[in-house]
Design a protein around this nucleic acid. Structure first.
Length: 291
DNA sequence: AGCCAGGCTAAGA
DNA sequence: TCTTAGCATGGC
């Protein structure tokens, strides 16, 4: 059952590993034998870095690659975005460190469910819980003799109970995932309608979901809906903004940081945040610098 | 061993 | 409106 690989051009600067495996925006991609494996919309894919693009292979032999292109945001003008960043030594260092880092466009439900697992968990643990959940509920799909699983739907999760979810080590987050899955399965909130909303309305809508606050809403709006105004402020980004941009400020509240980021990085807050996050996670020492 | 993790809810001031 | 305790689990 060998499938021939295909090639996505115009992705020369793309760095798959930092974008898919090591970025903290998506949690389902696995690095195996020099390829990166994952599932998009029920199809298994494997991807590999090539000199002038991305080599890929799908479990669906009739796959024309359009889903993958959309997921990778292959047509995005990354050069223009980087040019539009404010002149800033930290941002410049972050881009220089990982110039091939990109944002992707995930499926909204999977992204939302993933970040419902994120509070008070490390990224490695989030990945473990989500893979466990996939194996428990997801539809299997194989590629190269490896078995993967699609992400469980909201209806599938809503049909279960909290103890089942807790058996996948998600602790108190089980209540939130179950509650949100039920709101969506019941048609209480329509995730497909969120894409047409402007950013503030979308934030408000997502925050109606159980366990979703501003930070998780921003993650979903950025990583799944492509809303560039979204600037998720987690503990790391908060430290970065505080230490690097307001080294002597006291009583810096989340509200103040949100306002600063929205203005200063406009209109590319989402990308700026992603580069800064990736950079600080690999250079925590920059936070030691005293202002 | 002890600190901390891509936060949120709800209760109390 | 603003603060804060409590939350489950495990990597390092």
């Amino acid at each position: 059952m060998s499938s021939s690989s295909q090639f996505l051009p115009a992705l020369g600067g793309y760095h798959l590993l930092s974008t898919l495996v090591d970025s903290g925006q998506a949690f389902g991609w696995l690095s195996i034998d020099g390829w990166i494996y994952g599932v998009i919309d029920g199809r298994a894919y494997k991807l590999r870095q090539a000199s002038a693009g991305v080599e890929w292979c799908s479990s669906d032999h009739a796959d024309d690659g359009s889903k993958l292109r959309a997921y990778l945001r292959a047509d995005e003008d990354i050069e223009g975005i980087l040019q539009g960043f404010p002149v800033d030594e930290y941002l410049a260092a972050a881009v220089e460190y990982a110039p091939g880092l990109r944002l992707v466009r995930q499926e909204p439900w999977e992204c939302l469910a993933s970040f419902l697992i994120s509070p008070l968990k490390q990224i490695v643990q989030i990945k473990q819980v989500l893979h466990s959940l996939r194996r428990g509920l997801g539809v299997p799909v194989s590629l190269d003799g490896h078995e993967f699983h699609g992400f469980p739907t909201a209806a599938q999760i809503a049909a279960g109970d909290e103890d089942f979810l807790r058996s996948h080590k998600m602790g108190f987050r089980a209540r939130n995932l179950l509650g949100t899955a039920r709101q969506i399965a019941a048609g209480d909130i329509d995730l497909s309608a969120v894409s047409q909303m402007d950013y503030p309305a979308a934030v408000e809508e997502l925050c109606k979901l159980r366990g979703v606050g501003r930070k998780i809403a921003d993650c979903v709006l950025l990583f799944a809906y492509g809303k560039q105004e979204a600037f998720p402020i987690d503990v790391w980004i908060e430290r970065v903004l505080h230490r690097l941009y307001f080294p002597r400020a006291r009583n810096l509240h989340r509200r103040r940081l949100e306002r600063f980021a929205a203005e200063y990085f406009h209109p590319h807050g989402g990308y700026a945040q992603q580069y800064l996050f990736h950079y600080v996670r690999h250079h925590p020492g920059i936070l030691d610098k005293r202002g």
